[in-house]
């Protein structure tokens, strides 16, 4: 990993950032207490970046990821993705925006247990006007991209953890989103499966140009990313470039 710090300004020199965060804060109210989770976060994430968010438990990295993915709302500050201030969107608008722009990869895969791998991957396309045949075609293609062409009719409980996570990645890819968010994608996997999943994410980033933001506390997983941002106690410590081949 490189020691050279990259400021938000430097990162945005070539193109406007895909994600632009300014003075973002998030706090929860517990009883009559105000609990700050994120404080004054400013960060730019350029398109095509593979950013790893690192930090100890409770540092706010998952909260930041949730805010960027539009499944949580900030308490203050500015958050634009692709030029759109998503903090101002209503719940229904956010749902539509997520469906079109965000692919999710969760730690525990979050597949529908009653649907086959193919049906799980096809699920986000139900929100589009695509005909059934095209949905199927795309889902098959996505599954072949993650190397699971021979598992299309398998249910999640018939797949290994690594295979389930690859199905989840195929599901995240299927709508060709602007952004893929991954919350501890290797947290529930053995070393080998974790390496496969990270290699797959890296491939999506390098070959398909997908912007990926990944939360992890595994220093090994960071090597797959291009940049790493450190958080602690809700504050941003800085962003570093990850050296290729690390």
């Amino acid at each position: 990993m490189s020691d050279s710090a990259v400021s938000p300004a430097e990162a945005a020199t070539t193109a406007p950032p895909l994600v632009r965060i300014r003075n973002l804060s998030k706090h929860y109210t517990r009883g009559d207490q105000d609990v700050p989770v994120l404080t004054d976060i400013s960060l730019d994430i350029p398109a095509g970046d593979f950013l790893a968010l690192m930090g100890p438990s409770g540092s706010g990295k998952s909260t930041l990821l949730n805010l960027i993915a539009g499944i949580d709302k900030p308490s203050g500050g500015e958050l634009t993705v692709g030029g759109l201030n998503i903090a101002e969107l209503t719940e229904a608008e956010l749902a539509d925006w997520r469906a079109a722009n965000v692919g999710f990869v969760f730690q525990f895969y979050n597949l529908m247990p009653v649907l086959t791998a193919l049906e799980n991957v096809e699920l986000p396309l139900m929100l589009t006007d695509l005909p059934r045949s095209e949905r199927r075609e795309r889902a098959l293609l996505a599954l072949s991209l993650v190397g699971l062409s021979d598992r299309v009719d398998h249910y999640p409980n018939e797949l290994s953890g690594g295979q389930q996570q690859r199905v989840a990645i195929a599901r995240a890819l299927i709508t060709d989103p602007t952004l893929i968010v991954a919350d501890e994608p290797t947290g529930d996997l053995d070393k080998r499966s974790a390496a496969d999943v990270l290699a797959l994410l890296q491939q999506l980033n390098r070959e398909m140009g997908k912007t990926i933001i990944m939360v992890t506390h595994d220093p090994g997983a960071v090597k797959a990313a291009t940049h790493v941002t450190h958080l602690e106690k809700g504050e941003l410590l800085g962003t570093e470039l990850v050296a290729a081949g690390d």
């Binding site: 997520r98 469906a99 969760f106 979050n110 529908m112 699920l123 986000p124 139900m126 929100l127 599901r171």
Partner: peptide, 14 residues
Amino acid sequence: ISEYATLKALGFGP
């Protein structure tokens, strides 16, 4: 509950 939350995250409305 977590499945319903996943569906909502994917863009399915309430």
